[in-house]
Design a protein around this nucleic acid. Structure first.
Lengths: 204, 204
DNA sequence: AGAGGAAATTGAGTGGCGTTCAAACTTTCC
DNA sequence: GGAAAGTTTGAACGCCACTCAATTTCCTCT
């Protein structure tokens, strides 16, 4: 076996430092002021060194998003594994999904990465993979709620597509801080939608 | 010397030429390759001259989006003024709303402008104004359908917020060409949503 | 028609950015 | 100890949006 299998744990820490710095800068000052050299300054690296790790700014942004989604996935799993009713867990997952507020770095990264799409097939694939994680968890939760009779019987796959589209559409105004949008009201809107769509017809 | 024998051809509408060139370039080659100098080359202007008209690239993009939305508004008014039933007109408006396909320049501009938002209050206001045009038309159409009994009675204002969020969420994967997304299927999804939400309960 | 001011137009310059790269330094391993 | 591999630097490059002083074209008033 030629397996080097060397853990190279060394690499992990500086990369995470860089990604954490990127997230923090986006949250504090926005994407426009995020520069490679600036990130490097924050973590004590030269700009060249940052690119030695990530190859390009695009790659840095995408990996930062992936890293951020991994962390959120852990939280989501905790919520999903909880004991409460499917509907309560659904509400909690949606609360995790929607942006924290204006300039939420995770959503800002999403939005930026959409734009950079120069048709690179593998990048699109990676974006899709990130979405699928949410998708699958939502589908499973819906299926559980349906089988328990908590939710009206519907196609969980199709409904999840619809729900995610709705959430994405609601999320964007929140991240950019469009006047008149407010997280609380948005959550109410979503809940109203879920009430309309999921609540079983009152049985006679 | 070298004075041009003939006065340079004056562009009748230089600003529109620039905006049209920007839209065309986005559609053909994407936003990444859209440069001020490149646009200028297409319409026979220096880069400095383009900026003389628009002040900055951001301003050029926003004005191009506004211009593009004006044109679409004309089409929308034609559809809305048509004789067909509200539901048919609604479907037609939605067809106009959703992106043409990958790299639809209008949607690409939307997405880009979201990102550039560094909290400039007036820019946000102008984005909001663009959305309100669609919003008001949709609200009116829904109200008409409701009063005619074509649609279930519901709050047209709130429903329009929900519908636009859904459309925005469905639009993004289409513009970026996310694998597995297809305009026809998306339209079906939206129609299914409208059937679920608008169709009056079958009266006994 | 012609002068003179306003508008239009240019292109060279500026600064900042992402990215490259050769060279220098450090660690790893035989 | 020393070569190979990995790490780190910062100067250099090319590209870009944007500025600006200088020039040309247009318009208006007499």
């Amino acid at each position: 076996m030629t397996g080097p299998a060397r853990p190279r744990r060394r690499l992990k820490q500086p990369r995470e430092d860089v990604m954490a710095a990127a997230m923090a800068t986006i949250a504090e000052r926005g994407l426009a002021e995020l520069t490679i050299a600036g990130i490097g300054r924050q973590v004590g690296m030269s700009s060249g060194h940052v690119l030695y790790y990530f190859g390009s700014k695009d790659e840095l942004l995408l990996q930062t998003l992936e890293w951020s989604e991994e962390q959120l996935a852990a939280e989501r799993r905790r919520v999903l594994g909880g004991p409460s009713a499917p509907r309560e867990r659904l509400d909690a997952v949606i609360d995790l999904y929607l942006p924290d507020g204006r300039r939420d770095p995770r959503w800002t990264l999403w939005s930026e990465i959409w734009n950079r799409t120069t048709a690179a097939e593998d990048v699109l694939r990676r974006q899709l993979d990130l979405e699928l994680v949410w998708h699958r968890d939502l589908v499973a939760l819906l299926a559980e709620g349906i089988s328990r009779g908590d939710f009206r019987p519907l196609d969980p796959e199709r409904f999840t597509v619809r729900l995610r589209a709705l959430l994405d559409g609601f999320g964007v105004p929140l991240v950019i801080g469009l006047p008149g949008t407010d997280r609380g009201q948005t959550l109410e809107h979503v809940k109203e939608f879920l009430d309309d769509a999921l609540t079983p017809a009152p049985a006679g």
